[in-house]
Design a protein around this nucleic acid. Structure first.
Lengths: 198, 198, 198, 198
DNA sequence: AATGAATGAGTCTTCATTCAT
DNA sequence: GATGAATGAAGACTCATTCAT
């Protein structure tokens, strides 16, 4: 008796998710050097099967990035739409971002792996670039408003955004490389917020 | 008539430097995925010649790391031995580090590439790890002293060091990825120093 | 639908045998200078496939040597355990060895290739050395006994063993280099046996 | 003051001999796998120089073979032109050959290396083949004569020649591989001569 | 005549991808 | 839908050979 269409559909989705998940782990561990065989092994499927779900290695990465973007971990939009003064919203934003980085450091490690690799297709990097730009713009806008309300120190707002981004990225990296240290001494939000104090 | 010994000596040194330089650029651009062919091309040298100067790809990386370490860009020791109060010395240290990162962002990008690569030999990573530890320790000591003198905010000094390291590393990364932006908006030392303000 | 497990098993065994066989021929012909490409071509198999079955060139050689040893062509033990006087047993032994060399001259050519090659791993050569030693010892023991019973000429038994070994090895070599001549004029056992006549 | 023509000539000859000698040693040690660099090092000359004297690696081997042939070690002609009965001359011949093999086992090792290597040019192998043929023919002729005079056992003379050649070649090989054993137990001429006894 | 720096074709090995079952 | 055998294009490394000095 043949499988029903829905059963097939479900199987396909599960398998796809399983592979993607395995790719995630493998990729976070070994970066672009990850082989298809490793992904297949990690997913407990034959390595021919991977190609039924993804046309190429690149396609897997693309899907990973997509997932990363969809996951919202990189989104600021919803964080920006908060009640309160600009300063309060900025504080909230940064606190939330710190939380996310702390909890999902794997995402950011993956993100940085992808960004740091020339091998990644331009198309892919493009999309991430855009995402980063939105990030940047959102933060800048908030800072400008908070400067207007006197809640943030005056001066070139771009410098402040750069400083914030550098801090957050650096923290993600450190968290990935030295998870133990970060578990022990993850800097409290107050510390980075002082950079913005008037 | 053969070349004089000095001439050969000079050639060897120049070529070695040329190859190392090319490797530097190539490696900073593409990470461990850099091929020997790319290095050779970047150096305007034939494929085989690289092997007259370096016995393997690994050997090139080793030499690069050596150069990195020797360059002093990663050294804090001399920066720690300064006159002045702990707070003044800390300010001086951070200012100097920022300068270095701004001017030689390539070094730090390379450094991060090397650290982030599973393929790097343990021996090599070991050496860099030690260097990083010295960095960390130096900073922490200074912070503790500055806290004692009331020049730096109280609290877990490790958190402050982590915050500083994250900021500096993130800045290097950003500088490498977005040189234009950093040229325009390199954050002034005061910004990061505020993180330490009591 | 995937192949059945048995089908795969069978394919793997056949392919392995095919490659080993090809390696055998190629190696007997060209010695250690044999390239992987030649082996693959000889086996009618793609370049990369050889590596699915053998992890390296060395591994192929190892398997060949193993096969050689297992084949029994190099074994004397069973030939030594025969009924009859020492002289009769010696005659039997040598006759059998000559037969083997005549029929499987390829094995001995390969053997000599392997032994004569500086590149062969020590491990490998070690095993063959031991095998050769057993050969030598078995023969010597038989000769000593036959000397005691007066069936073999008196004198340094080692000289006689050396003479026998030299003869047998030389014959294998000749058989490999000049198969036609040996087919026409393979020396009868009586000739070499005369070397031992009292 | 420029060198005289003769001086140059002499230097050239010395260098050539030096290189050839070094090649000899290196080649006997490692077979065809010997590199030009090794030959140059063994000869204490720069590796560019080797090409002033020999146009290629092949040319060196050719010269070595030439030397081997010229050396007389492979010649039977003069040994055949001896006084005495055919049997006496045969005994003399074999005794002399054994002496030569014992003393110059290197030559025969080299010889066998060359013969056993597919890489050797056909031209080269051709010449050695001819030389071997002369060897063979000379021996056969003597044996036929000695059979006629009843000094050698009757039967297919070719079988006897094959047996003799096999023995001699095998002995050379053994001498090269196990010099110590051969030094201790080099079989006396009487042993091989018994193969011919009527 | 002599040196050794430079070149590039050839060899081993890995791995993304295809395909028969 | 699933498996794993098969392919071949790259990449690291070696070495015979050429060439400037």
């Amino acid at each position: 008796m043949p499988r029903t269409e829905e059963a097939n559909q479900r199987i396909r989705e599960e398998q796809r998710a399983k592979i993607l998940d395995a790719a995630w782990r493998a990729f976070a561990r070994k970066g672009t050097a990850t082989t298809m065989a490793e992904i297949a092994t990690e997913a407990n499927v034959s390595y021919g099967l991977v190609y039924r779900y993804f046309s190429s290695k690149e396609a897997i990465f693309k899907a990973l990035v997509e997932q990363m973007i969809q996951s919202g971990a990189l989104r600021v939009q919803n964080l920006l739409e908060q009640p309160g003064t600009p300063g309060e919203r900025l504080t909230f934003l940064i606190t939330k971002i710190l939380e996310a980085r702390r909890e999902r450091s794997d995402i950011f490690l993956l993100f940085q792996h992808v960004m740091g690799d020339e091998m990644m297709s331009d198309d892919l990097r493009q999309r991430l670039q855009e995402r980063g730009q939105a990030y940047y713009d959102g933060m800048k806008q908030l800072i400008v408003e908070a400067q207007a309300s006197g809640e943030v120190v005056a001066g070139d707002p771009d410098q402040l955004v750069v400083a914030l981004m550098a801090y957050l990225d650096g923290l993600s990296r450190l968290a990935a490389r030295e998870p133990e240290m970060l578990k022990q001494h993850f800097p409290e939000p107050e510390i980075v917020l002082r950079m913005l104090k008037p």
